[in-house]
Amino acid sequence: MPSRGKAVRGSRRGDQSPIHFLPVVLHEGQAVVSQRQIAAKSNEILAFALLLDPLGLRNQVITPDAMHTQIGHAEHIATRGARYSWS
């Protein structure tokens, strides 16, 4: 089953899937600064660029999890003036 970010506790209704969000979390303070809902029949790979686009990433270090170790994601981060470190 593909990963879809974090499931929202209590969001499952009957036989429906729970709501999932893909968050952007600051390392210091662990604050969520942005999040995007992931479609029930999708996964977080498709939401990655859309989640990062509104954020100012220049000179930031992005540390996505292993699912995002993809050339397209690395290029997207680099073209925004940021660097990455895969976890």
Rank of each mutant, 00 (worst) to 15 (best):
A47R: 00
A47D: 08
F48D: 00
F48L: 03
F48T: 05
F48I: 05
A49L: 06
L50P: 07
L50C: 07
L51T: 00
L51M: 02
L51H: 06
D53V: 06
D53S: 12
D53Y: 04
D53M: 10
D53A: 15
P54R: 11
P54H: 09
P54A: 09
L55Q: 07
L57E: 01
L57Y: 04
R58K: 15
R58G: 02
R58H: 10
N59Q: 04
N59R: 08
N59F: 11
Q60M: 05
Q60C: 14
V61K: 07
V61S: 05
I62V: 14
I62P: 06
T63D: 07
T63V: 09
T63L: 08
T63I: 08
P64T: 02
P64A: 15
P64M: 12
D65G: 02
D65L: 13
A66Q: 15
A66L: 12
A66F: 14
A66K: 15
M67H: 11
M67G: 10
H68Q: 04
H68E: 03
H68G: 01
H68W: 13
H68C: 09
I71G: 03
G72Q: 04
G72H: 13
G72W: 14
H73S: 12
H73N: 15
A74L: 13
A74E: 04
E75I: 00
H76I: 01
H76S: 11
H76R: 08
I77R: 06
I77N: 02
I77M: 04
I77Q: 01
I77T: 08
I77G: 05
I77Y: 12
A78M: 07
A78Q: 12
A78C: 02
T79F: 04
T79I: 13
R80I: 15
R80Y: 08
R80C: 10
G81D: 02
G81M: 15
G81S: 11
A82R: 14
A82P: 06
R83W: 13
